[in-house]
Simulated assay, not measured.
Amino acid sequence: MQRFFKPLRALGLGLLLGAAPLAAAHGEKNHADKDPTLFSGLESGAGKTVLAFHRALREGDQQTVMDALADAVVIFEGGGVERSASEYAGHHLPADMAFLKQMNITQRELQVREQGDLAYAYGRAQVQGEFKGKALDLQSMETLVLARTGDGWKIVHVHWSSK
Rank of each mutant, 00 (worst) to 15 (best):
M1A: 10
A89D: 15
A25C: 09
F39T: 01
V81A: 06
G150H: 05
V74N: 06
H31A: 13
G90R: 05
L144W: 03
Y120T: 05
L138P: 07
V156L: 08
N30Q: 11
L93C: 02
E142C: 12
G12S: 09
K154S: 09
T64G: 07
R108V: 04
Q63R: 08
W153L: 05
G133T: 06
A70R: 02
H92Q: 08
K29L: 12
Q139E: 10
K163V: 14
K163I: 15
A147D: 03
D67F: 12
V73F: 02
P7F: 02
K132F: 04
L11D: 07
L110Y: 01
G80Y: 03
G78I: 02
L110K: 00
A72R: 11
G123D: 08
D35I: 04
A10G: 14
D71N: 15
L69P: 07
A56R: 00
K6A: 15
V127R: 02
A24Y: 15
A135Q: 08
F99C: 01
D33I: 10
E82D: 12
A46F: 03
G79Y: 04
E130P: 03
A68L: 05
P36K: 09
Y88P: 00
D96H: 09
E28P: 12
S86V: 11
D67W: 12
R55P: 04
M141V: 15
R58I: 02
Q139N: 09
M1K: 07
G150A: 09
A119E: 07
M97H: 05
G78V: 05
G60E: 14
K154P: 05
H26A: 11
D96G: 02
H159K: 07
S86W: 05
L93T: 00
L93S: 02
I155G: 04
E77L: 11
E82P: 04
A23G: 15
H31L: 12
A25F: 06
G79F: 04
T37W: 00
K48P: 02
Q102S: 09
F131I: 03
K163D: 15
D151N: 10
W160D: 14
V156W: 04
A32G: 11
L8F: 15
G116V: 06
E114Y: 06
R9K: 15
E130S: 10
S44N: 01
G41S: 04
G14H: 13
L138R: 13
A70G: 02
A19P: 05
L38D: 09
L136Q: 10
A85P: 06
H54I: 01
S162Y: 13
K48S: 08
Q128L: 13
